[in-house]
Design a protein around this nucleic acid. Structure first.
Length: 552
RNA sequence: GCGCCCGUAGCUCAGCUGGAUAGAGCAUCGGACUUCUAAUCCGAGGGUCAUAGGUUCGAAUCCUAUCGGGCGUGCCA
């Protein structure tokens, strides 16, 4: 990228200046290039002169002057300027901008992608909702975040796998079976109390109703425990299928579904504990089996097997992570809700106890979604029965807006999602703003083609020379940097921000520059610019999982 | 109590490893369609960056303290 090229030029200039003794021979720090906020300050700027001034015992501007004098000519640099307290500002030539358009034309939607990940195997585990009911809105956020993170890491050259960990073991499953069974019995007229900790949601009744509609009272005289376990299996399957359908509506497809039950069934949990015991990180106390998390700087040790002989969720999770690590991934990324953040330390401790470096496991913590309806908070608990499900949200707001909204905010800040607002605002929605830019370009391209303007006969990019045109190309040129940074920081909201910026710059260009004119050469060049913009816009929308409509 | 995250415009939020005059959207007000999509564009108002110190050429950004908010701190999952 051009900033790397500039940094290298500066480094060469510094070395030369030092050789010529115009600068004292001090160690050269990392050369940082940044985009100035003010357009008047050029395309790129560096503060290197100010950083060096102290060590060199020279005024910053004098250092800057020496560096500027030592810089060689470059066809992509128009002008170098010293400004303010000692910034060196670089103004790029239009030739460089035209080169960007050629890159986009050559690379298509993969413009901005790279091979930086070198095929490293990354597994992202996300959503992992308990299969005891429909997904709530928070799950939708993890789905969007995990899927898009997977998309951008793929674009950066990583070999990414999406996995859903099914928590289909333990107490909440039993309660689930008991809830359905009770509703079934009630439905058939028996006055039995609903379990105090049972799931209140209407969907429990729906499942019970389906069973009774299909098979009547066939299960009425079963022993309670038998009925419950039968209904549990049946309902579990149904809910799992439903999860997949909902995720598909979100545009999320998992490569792998991993069942917690399998761990227990295959004695993987016992083996994991045995392994830790061999390494000396397990002891017994008070009838329970403990993991020595304190050996890794944790505040306290954690129970693996309760005094009643039941393994904890943590024990299963250790076995799960052991399994993942043994599958040969170079890196594991888990996306967890903020309510799990106290869990990170002990999980990383466990990873180390298993003999792996702690940073092999990376946890992306996301704050939760506060669902609102007309300004009133809506409770999200599975037990209230009145929650708004992800399905309903998708139904009301639509997949594109849902995904875009979930990705718009920094993952580690809580998200207020007001359903009424999202519906009312649908025409003012940022997602429509971006999609409209795409549709508008498509319309222009259709019109231009009808006017016999085509790009196959060669394009003279030099005809693009006004500020709205050049600004648009500059914005296109940012995409690789945006993608790189988002992937590195595991942050998605810069992607939606960029999509909006690109759309805005295009809309401005549209009002200033007519594409189809009497000047065929100019029309062709502008058409090429529209085409490049559309290509990049598609690339952005693709990683976001949002549609790029041809018409609106 | 301790740990993590957070406090920026009326509202919702950006602000990258410290940089030049703190930004965007919404909302408010005022303009722009005989011409490729007005779901668009242009302009205006709106800020003690929670508070107080510190670090330095330079702080919304780093450090400390205080105030305020969220989450966690299970032999739950």
């Amino acid at each position: 990228m051009i900033n790397e090229r500039l940094a290298e030029m500066i480094r060469v200039a510094l070395l030369q200046a030092q050789r010529e003794e115009r600068l004292p021979t001090v160690e050269i720090p990392q050369i940082v290039l940044e985009r100035p906020r003010e357009k008047a300050h050029g395309d790129w700027a560096t503060n290197i002169a100010m950083v060096l001034a102290g060590k060199a015992k020279m005024p910053p501007r004098a250092v800057a002057q020496v560096i500027a004098d030592a810089l060689g000519d470059d066809k992509y640099i128009n002008k170098v300027e010293i400004a303010g307290p000692g910034f060196i500002n670089f103004y790029l030539s239009n030739e460089w901008l035209y080169e960007v358009l050629r890159d986009i034309d050559r690379e298509g939607e993969s413009f901005g992608h790279s091979t930086a990940g070198r095929g490293e195997r990354v597994q992202i585990e996300f959503v992992s909702a308990n299969p005891v009911g429909p997904m709530h809105v928070g799950h939708g956020r993890w789905a969007a975040v995990g899927d898009t993170l997977a998309n951008i890491l793929t674009a950066r050259g990583y070999d990414v796998e999406r996995e859903f960990y099914i928590n289909d073991f333990g107490n909440q499953m039993n309660i689930f079976g008991k809830s359905v069974a009770t509703r079934y019995v009630q439905l058939l007229g028996r006055d039995v109390p609903f379990p105090e900790d049972g799931y209140q949601g209407e969907y429990i009744r729906d499942i019970a109703r389906e069973i009774s509609a299909a098979e009547g009272d066939a299960y009425l005289d079963f022993a309670e425990s038998e009925r419950e376990s039968l209904f549990l299996e049946r309902s579990y399957k149904q809910v799992l299928e439903h999860l997949k359908v909902t995720l598909e509506k979100m545009g999320v497809v998992f490569d792998s579904w991993f069942s917690e039950r399998e761990l227990h069934a295959s004695s993987a949990v016992d083996e994991a504990i045995a392994g830790l015991r061999e390494s000396g990180y397990v002891y017994e106390e008070g009838g329970a089996v403990w993991f020595k998390a304190t050996a890794f700087g944790e505040e306290k040790d954690r129970v693996l097997i309760r005094a009643n002989g039941e393994p904890t969720y943590f024990a299963a999770d250790i076995a799960y992570h052991k399994n993942k690590l043994e599958r040969g991934f170079d890196r594991l990324i888990n996306i967890w809700g903020a309510d799990h953040h106290g869990y990170i330390g002990r999980m990383k401790a466990a990873v180390q106890a298993l003999g792996y470096p702690a940073d092999k496991l990376e946890i992306v913590i996301g704050q939760l979604v506060n669902l609102m309806r007309g300004g009133e908070p809506v409770r999200m608990s599975k037990r209230t029965g009145e929650m708004v499900t992800l399905d309903e949200l998708l139904e009301e707001v639509g997949r594109d807006a849902v995904r875009f909204f979930f990705l718009m905010r920094s993952t580690d800040s809580p998200l207020d999602f007001d359903i009424e607002l999202a519906k009312e605002q649908s025409n003012e929605n940022p997602v429509y703003y971006v999609q409209y830019a795409h549709a508008r370009i498509s319309s222009i391209v259709r019109f231009a083609e009808a006017e016999n303007i085509d790009l196959s006969g060669g394009i003279d990019y030099r005809r693009l020379e006004t500020e709205p045109e050049l600004d648009l190309i500059r914005k296109l040129a940012e995409w690789p940097e945006v993608l790189e940074r988002a992937a590195r920081q595991r942050a998605l909201h810069p992607l939606t921000a960029y999509a909006q910026e690109l759309a805005a710059v295009f809309h401005f260009f549209y009002t200033k520059c007519r594409v189809v004119t009497d000047d065929k050469e100019l029309s062709t060049a502008r058409m090429a610019l529209c085409d490049a913009t559309r290509t990049v816009l598609r690339g952005v929308l693709t990683v976001l999982g949002v549609a790029a409509p041809e018409r609106m």
